[in-house]
């Protein structure tokens, strides 16, 4: 069970959060101009890295804010949390 440092609320138990998958997948601004394959790439394809991964998290039972996290999926180490719109702190 992680201890997550919500950028708005501070350290809270993982049970207050929900995970939202890979971060920094930007919704295409002109979806109509994309081929089926390009759209499928955005819609379905996720990296699922073993190692350091950028992820979206939501403080669902708290401030309800979405934020990003740098987490190593191989050992669950959380290297950083940062707000939506911010660049990932370089690792």
């Amino acid at each position: 069970m992680f201890l997550i440092n919500c950028p708005y609320c501070g350290e809270r138990d993982q049970s207050e959060f929900s995970a939202g998958g890979e971060a920094h997948i930007i919704r295409p601004k002109q979806p109509t101009e994309l081929s089926d394959d390009q759209w499928a790439e955005f819609l379905f394809m996720r990296k699922n890295i073993k190692g350091v991964q950028l992820e979206r998290w939501n403080h669902a039972h708290g401030c309800r804010k979405w934020f990003n996290m740098v987490r190593d999926t191989s050992n669950d180490k959380i290297h950083a949390v940062y707000k939506m719109g911010e660049k990932p702190p370089i690792k």
Binding site: G20, I26, R56, N58, A60, R64, K65, W66, M84, G85
Partner: peptide
């Protein structure tokens, strides 16, 4: 509500 919040906070801030 959480889906709408997700879009508002992340895609269309």
């Amino acid at each position: 509500l959480s889906k709408l919040e997700d879009y508002l906070q992340t895609e269309w801030p």
